[in-house]
């Protein structure tokens, strides 16, 4: 079973019996989505901006977790006090593996909140507990994710710096994940539209609008039947 806990915005924790992975513990308007004392083993950050990196350095120091990201992200994490021996630079399309986790990063893009220019942003294809999660929390382009096998697709829908609704829907239609989770919306109607369009045009995908504090549990029943459920449990540290 894989538990996917949602902190709001683009922050998630992926938890199995073996490990916990924190994704993009960003800071929004000065507020951290994830508490500094959140306990995890790996933190993966898709770009160096605050809405992705946030308080990753503090969390990593407290929990002695690895921080994974591209070069600019790792550099900024270092600047923010992350321990050098807990930093690991991800290379595009080069899988990173530890027991219970395989992450393949892809070099995608997002529009910088700070400069308005396009910057590199990693798209993550994460394999944990026989589940495949595609995470494009901040992405402006889809890269190869349209044809990567995916069980859970996490996509932005807010436009401007990342996908607009239409591209998120288009991606889910192509990738055919079992569950599509919209994130990073800037207006209330965006996730609703995403859900509406996925219901109409996503042939096999269930749209799932998660609230902060909710946890999605996904598992294979009888080895091949995908099942999911949502609880309101708070994300639990490892």
């Amino acid at each position: 079973m894989l538990k996917i806990a949602y902190f709001g915005k683009t922050s998630f924790a992926l938890e199995t019996k073996e490990t916990t992975v924190l994704l993009n513990p960003g800071t929004w308007d000065g507020e951290s989505a994830v508490p500094d004392d959140f306990d995890c083993r790996v933190i993966i950050v898709t770009n160096h901006e605050d809405d992705a990196l946030g308080n990753a350095a503090e969390i990593a120091v407290n929990s002695k977790a690895w921080i994974l990201g591209n070069e600019s992200t790792i550099e900024r994490a270092r600047e923010r006090g992350a321990k050098a021996w807990l930093l690991h630079t991800l290379k595009p399309e080069v899988p990173y593996e530890i027991p219970g986790l395989k992450v393949t990063p892809f070099s995608l893009q997002k529009r910088s909140v700070e400069t308005g220019e396009n910057i590199e942003n990693l798209g993550l294809h994460i394999e944990m507990s026989t589940m495949k999660v595609s995470y494009l929390g901040d992405s402006l382009v889809r890269g190869p994710f349209g044809h990567l096998e995916t069980n859970v697709m996490i996509v932005p829908v807010g436009g401007e710096h990342a996908f607009p609704v239409k591209d998120a829907v288009s991606l889910c239609i192509d990738a055919l994940p079992q569950v599509g989770i919209p994130v990073r919306w800037t207006s209330e109607d965006q996730p609703k539209k995403f859900a509406k369009y996925i219901e109409q045009f996503g042939q096999k995908t269930t749209p799932l609008l998660m609230e902060p504090g909710q946890t999605l549990e996904v598992q294979w029943a009888a080895g091949h039947e995908f099942r999911h459920s949502v609880s309101s449990e708070s994300p639990e540290p490892e």
Partner: peptide, 9 residues
């Protein structure tokens, strides 16, 4: 390849 998206390499 069935498809290549913008940025695919």
């Amino acid at each position: 390849w069935a498809r290549m998206n913008p940025g695919d390499k």
